[in-house]
Design a protein around this nucleic acid. Structure first.
Length: 680
DNA sequence: GTTAGCTTTGT
DNA sequence: CAAAGCTAA
């Protein structure tokens, strides 16, 4: 009956009332319906894991109570199709506008575009905003108007932009509720009975919710931030910001973090506090990496499943589920790695340094396919974040132009003495090694028999011997790299012979199916210090097949692939599965469209900056403009869009695109590791 | 104390 | 590879 001007605010990973541009815009426009849609099936294989859902549950409750104190409440919907649920809510509330904030992961890019199209075709006004980043990805380009391809250059540009990030918005003082009398909330089941027991521990260490996020920020800025630079090497870290899960769910605005931290930096700079200034720079850099992860994802929407440097597609990963299991359980025989993996399993948390240690070990010593590791992180981390994790794993696995070289193996023994010099971290998480002297704690396999005996360590029985020696790993890695170059040369030869699709298309991601039985057996549970055992309930995190399912059409195909992959899992196919190719082509088209449309849809919601800044984008990709809601809204047209095509890369996707490589002088460093043979 | 030359590290 | 850190004259 009411509301000519009822607006829906579609909350996603922006679970806050403060500095939430979509919410503020809706409040300004009139009555408001706050909506959250839970549609995990849409995320394909990246459905949130147990701890992630635990966080979400509490964050939503917190948001709801904040909204209630402002005059409305959160409508929740359980759905398998966000867009149609959105439309249902529009109809049942009589809303005329839908506002939401941007996301940059590949699935959201497509879904949000669909949402915009469908709603617009129903005569609904849709506006979207930047709530997640300091600057939108399309605002950060090099001198030629191209996206950056190395982090340092990207971040330097961000920090020297001619205009500051928007200042944070205050929370609304009051919200006038829309008419939801015909719109019932669904109860969301984000945690089942078995999981409750496991999750009970989490609440001791973490407090989800936007106002708790603000408290965590204040605590950090007034405390550990000052020593951030000094402490960053310690595995045992009460010294990190602990903001990542808050940031993942958008409980905390990055713009606000940036703002407050910069103010602190100015203060310290005035006092001549060098250490403080340095700490702020380092902390901001980690914020920058988060920005960069979105930037990479937007520019290369396949980066969660394809290496950005093409030759990695042909790397002969070791497909060994035994290794994978040992890694997950913290039974690799390398104490620092094992301690990290057990901490991850027990708490859903890992210091950034240790994430690098365990993932580097995974990729370089075990030589397992990095996407397996990434998926495991996704399932177990409290702050699991697709964009950040993709960036991290690509960095580790040598598939970024500015990442670590693949042939440099980090030795967990030496890293142990660097990050955990007194062995305290290892002792906390590996009780079976607790009595070992520090001298041997990071390499028990070298310890004299008598020492081991005195410490109650029986290698091979209560603590494993290293499952792979570092020397053996180095040898195998070199061989693998030669093999990769051999395949790469062969692939190039085929392509140059004029064959349409050569080897190059048997992408690594499709060749290596994810193991199906990721759950750990009860009996093999790693020992854990004095925490009560967590109930093992992992079915909900069972890993599906290899592909991201972007569409329903595709999901059908996916199950076929799963079956065929079962049979030949250990093989890196030499020949291209034609069905797979068709799927890839479909994906490619979807993504191209999505990219193009993302360009459109983001442009249409963005706050206009100064004209000069925008003109580059506008002139290349926008042909018409029209007025809407008093704002100038650019409109995209295909004929004018060379820009978005470049973002996608060539027909082979991001990974193998020569254009990507061409823009990377450094990539050739990768190509030249130790003069590996280019042929045979 | 300084510094060339080597090792480590870094997104 | 380049910058930073370290060592041995």
């Amino acid at each position: 009956m009411s509301s000519g001007g009822c607006s829906i605010v579609w909350f996603r990973r922006d679970l806050r009332v403060e500095d939430n541009p979509a919410l503020s815009a809706a409040v300004r426009a009139g009555t408001v319906v706050a909506l959250f849609i839970w549609a995990p099936e849409e995320e394909g294989q990246y459905q949130p894991g147990r701890v992630s859902r635990w966080w979400l549950k509490h964050s939503l409750a917190h948001l709801d109570s904040s909204l209630r104190s402002l005059g409305t409440s959160l409508i929740t919907k359980r759905s398998t199709n966000s867009v149609s649920s959105l439309l249902d809510v529009v109809k049942s509330t009589g809303a005329t506008q839908v506002f939401f904030n941007h996301l940059y992961d590949p699935l959201s890019l497509i879904r949000d575009h669909q949402a915009k199209e469908v709603l617009t075709s129903h005569g609904i006004t849709v506006l979207s905003f930047n709530a997640d980043l300091l600057y939108e990805p399309w605002d950060i380009n090099d001198a030629c108007g191209q996206p950056f391809t190395t982090f340092a250059a990207f971040w330097e540009r961000c920090l020297s932009m001619p205009y500051d990030p928007d200042s944070p918005l205050l929370p609304p003082k009051k919200i006038i509720p829309g008419d939801v009398s015909r719109c019932m909330s669904d109860i969301l089941v984000l945690e089942d009975e078995l999981e409750k027991a496991s999750n009970a521990l989490l609440a001791r260490a973490w407090s989800p919710g936007w106002s708790n996020a603000n408290k965590a920020l204040t605590t950090f800025i007034n405390g550990p931030l000052l020593e951030y630079s000094k402490n960053r090497k310690k595995a045992d870290s009460a010294t990190t910001s602990f903001l990542s899960p808050h940031l993942h769910f958008g409980e905390l605005s990055v713009k606000k973090v940036f703002h407050l931290v910069c103010i602190k930096q100015i203060l310290w700079a005035n006092e001549g506090n060098k250490a403080g200034e340095e700490s702020v720079n380092l902390f901001l850099q980690s914020i920058g990496l988060r920005e960069y992860s979105r930037y990479i994802c937007f520019n290369h929407p396949n980066s969660h499943e394809r290496p950005l440097l093409g030759q990695l597609k042909l790397f002969p990963w070791v497909v060994n589920e035994g290794y994978f299991k040992a890694w997950r359980q913290g039974r690799t025989g390398y104490p620092l790695v094992d301690a990290g993996m057990r901490e991850l399993w027990a708490t859903g948390w890992l210091h950034d340094r240790i994430r690098v240690v365990v993932s580097s070990f995974f990729v370089k010593v075990l030589q397992l396919p990095w996407r397996w590791g990434m998926k495991y992180f996704w399932d177990t981390l409290l702050d699991a974040d697709l964009e950040s994790d993709a960036l991290g794993w690509q960095y580790i696995s040598g598939s970024l132009p500015d990442g670590r070289e693949l042939d440099r193996i980090d030795n967990p023994q030496f890293e142990g003495y660097k990050f955990d010099p007194n062995g305290e971290y290892v002792r906390r998480w590996l009780p079976e090694l607790a009595r070992l002297p520090t001298e041997w704690i990071h390499h028990p396999w070298n310890a004299p028999e008598a020492v081991l005996e005195a410490a109650g360590v029986e290698l091979g029985s209560n603590y494993p011997l290293p499952i792979v020696g570092i020397d053996a790993a180095e040898t195998r890695l070199e061989e693998a790299l030669s093999e990769m170059w051999r395949l790469e040369a062969a692939s190039r030869a085929v392509t140059e012979n004029g064959t349409e699709e050569g080897l190059g298309d048997s992408s690594e991601s499709t060749a290596v199916a994810f193991p199906q039985d990721i759950q750990m057996e009860e009996s093999d549970e790693p020992a854990r210090n004095n925490s009560p055992p967590l109930a093992r309930h992992y079915q909900d995190q069972m890993v599906p097949s290899i592909t991201s399912s972007l569409t329903r059409v595709e999901e059908e195909v996916t199950s076929d692939i799963r079956n065929s992959a079962e049979q030949s899992r250990a093989e890196v196919p030499i020949n291209v599965n034609t069905r797979q190719n068709a799927r890839d082509a479909l994906n490619e088209r979807m993504l191209q469209t999505a990219q193009r449309n993302a360009q459109l849809h983001y442009n249409s919601g963005m706050h206009m900056r100064n004209a000069a800044e925008d003109s580059a984008v506008e002139s290349s990709s926008i042909s018409r403009r029209r007025e809407r809601d008093g704002g100038v809204v650019p409109e995209w047209s295909p004929s004018a869009s060379s820009y978005s095509e470049q973002l996608v890369g060539d027909e082979n996707g991001i990974a193998s695109s020569s254009s990507y490589l061409q823009r990377h002088p450094q990539s050739h460093q990768l190509l030249n590791w130790r003069g590996l043979p280019q042929t045979g």
